[in-house]
Amino acid sequence: MLSAVWQTLTRWYHQWGSPRYFFQYSGVLLRWLWPLAIVATMTGLVWGLAFAPADYQQGDSYRIIFIHVPAASAALLGYVSMGVAGLVGLVWRMKMADIMIKAIAPFGAILAAVALITGAIWGKPTWGTYWVWDARLTSMLLMLFLYLGVIALINAIPDPRQAGRAASLLSVVGVINVVIVKYSVQWWQSLHQGSTLKVVGETAMPAEMLSPLLISMLGIYLLFACTVLVRARTEIMRRERKSQWLKEALQ
C-alpha cells in the first residue's frame, strides 16, 4: 500500500518535472482550476463581507481579515514552496523547479504587499494609526523584502537558466532564514513590548466567521496556483519555442 503510494508520487514527480508533460496537463488542469478559484474566492469574500456577523469588539472593520489573512498565509506558503522548489532544482537539477520559482515570485510579492496594505488599513480603526511595528506586520515587511530580493536577482541575470538556478539557491537560503527571522522578530517584539494586532478570535473563532475565512483562503490559494501555472506555461513557451513538441501542442 505504502510503496504503491510512493511509486505514484515518484511517477508524478518525474512526469510533472518534464516541461512537455507539465505543459500538456497544466492546460487541462487550468480549465477546472480557474472556475473553482473564482467561485471559491467570490463565495468566501461575499460571505465574509455581507453575511458573517460583526465582531463584538472591532465591529465591521474586522471584515478586512477575509483578505488579509488569506493573502498573508499564501505569501508565506509561496515563499516556502519556492524554497522547496529551489532545493529540488539544486539537488536534482530539475528544469521545472527554477521555472516554478520564477512563476511563484511575482504573485508572492504582490500577496505580501496586499497583506501589508490591508494590515495597515486595518490598523487605523484598531490602533488609531496606519503603521505600528507589530510582529506580524514587521515579519510580512521582511517577507516582502525577501521576495523583492529574489525578483531583483532574477531580473539582473540575463541568462534565464542561470537566473533560475541563482534564484533557487537564494530561495533555499531565504527559507532557512525566514524561520530565524520569524523567531527573532517575535523576540524583538517582546523586548520592546509594542502593540500587537489581535486577529479576531485568535483562539476560538465562531464557525460563522471561520467558514468564510477558510473558503476565501482556499480561493486565494487557488488563484495563486492558477497564476503560477500560467506563468510557468509562459516560461516553458519562451524556453522551448524551438521544440517540435511545443509546436505540435499549439497547432
Binding site: 523584502f145 525577501l146 523583492l148 536577482l153
Partner: peptide
C-alpha cells in the same frame, strides 16, 4: 545595490539579537 537587496533581509536576525 543588488547585493544589498539580497543580503539585508538575511541580516535581520543578527541585527535584532
Amino acid at each position: 545595490i543588488l547585493l544589498a537587496l539580497l543580503v539585508l533581509p538575511l541580516y535581520v536576525p543578527v541585527l535584532v539579537f
